[in-house]
Write a protein that binds this DNA or RNA. Sequence first.
DNA 1: GCTCATGTTCCCCT
DNA 2: CAGGGGAACATGAG
Length: 252
Amino acid sequence: MPELPDVEGYRRTAHKAAGRRIEQVDVVDRSLLRGGRADSIAGERFGDPERHGKWLIMPAGDAEVLMHFGMTGRLDWAPRRSERHQHDRIVFVCRGGELRYRNMRKFGGVWVWRQRRERVTGPLGPDATEVDRERFHELLGGRRGGLKAALMDQRLIAGLGNLMVDELAWRARVNPRASIGRLSKRRIDRLWEAMDGVVRESLPTGRVPPLDGWLTGVRDERAPHCPRCGARLRKETVAGRTTAWCPREQRR
DNA sequence: GCTCATGTTCCCCT
DNA sequence: CAGGGGAACATGAG
């Protein structure tokens, strides 16, 4: 699940732990604690959580808890002692409840970190919520290669994932295989407007909404059709990921 | 048994 | 150096 809006939802979940004392950290699966020592934040209080792209950052005393969710991660707030899920890998037990980092496939992980964030996250571009039209043009301007790969690149813009990129390309009526260098200013404008709309409308939902009128609403069907024009959608691998688009509206 | 999955990284080419 | 393709990571669902 986790793209920008999903992680934004986890940030809201994490906020329930803000201001609370960390009684203990249960490292159920050691392999998901990718850096730092979990017991070093016992007794500290969580601060207000932040999000940058697909990263969730929780201050805890003089440390930060960095979380990445891979493809199957999530975060839950639950009463202490209530039954845990099979894939709850790291649990932050607080007064009044516990924050549970769950991850089935074990991509991503948790860091208890006191050094430069970038050493864990790698270089990240601006969060997609903070890229205005002008900045978008600047970011894409110096770039060659395919559109899809560029928008998925977290170093360029942080937070967009496979579903969102397909969604915004479809909304902008631009082919995901398009070469950036050959896109008109007008098309890049349309891409920015689509990105902005998809991001804004997804944020409150906590996911890329599979709504009527969204590509995400139909892409998982066996024979999906374009919600606008009804053409049969294409599904192929682009930039290494399963990509859905409308061959009638998103021509090369 | 097989294929596919909303992410990232690393290696090898061009 | 910039990009692209493919494999790997780990685990489940269909």
